[in-house]
Amino acid sequence: MRRLPVYLLLDTSGSMKGEPIEAVKNGLESLVGFLRQDPFALESVHLSIITFDREVHNILPLKDLESLILPEIVTPDSGPTHLGQALELLCELVDKEVLKSTPDQKGDWMPLLFIMTDGKPSDLQKYREMIPEVKSRHFGEIVACAAGPKVDDQLLKELTHIVVHLDTADSSTIKSFFKWVSASVSTGNRSMGAGGDVVLPPPPPQVNMVI
């Protein structure tokens, strides 16, 4: 059985403290709960979580859904948003963890990447350096979620054409974002349309898709 590696990059900078980060924690819990109830996802999805603020941590190393335990997420009171550095760690992890096909062995599915942030990358130069690196890793899909009014959608669009904008970073919008992530990850065994490729499900109504 091929694995479907799913990487979540979550902004834990100071501005996320309080309601937004609580919503992220709840969102993660329901994401895992939802995917565990889907026999297809349960057999294939492996989850990895990277948090970024001043520091970058792989708080959940790539793990199958069945046995993973969601780690504690903490936010500093204030500080920068090192998204560039997070992407660097991501690339290292992908190189190390994602199984490539060889003539003798089937590899993993192309990994999925979801990024959620409420601010601008503080390490802008690093961020721009990492963009081509991330793109060369062949993700199946990269979805960036811009939560709240302070995010610069244009900067995220340099990384991916799928930028979802949440007008506010409150619990209900963040919840709907995680619901949408669940739906995207579990489309694997849905019926395929007669038209073309499998596409992402439509985003929830509260979310604006920036394309």
Partner: peptide, 12 residues
């Protein structure tokens, strides 16, 4: 089964 047809998972 075990046979690999392509290095790209989707094509395989």
């Amino acid at each position: 089964g075990g046979k690999v047809h392509d290095a790209d998972a989707q094509k395989d």
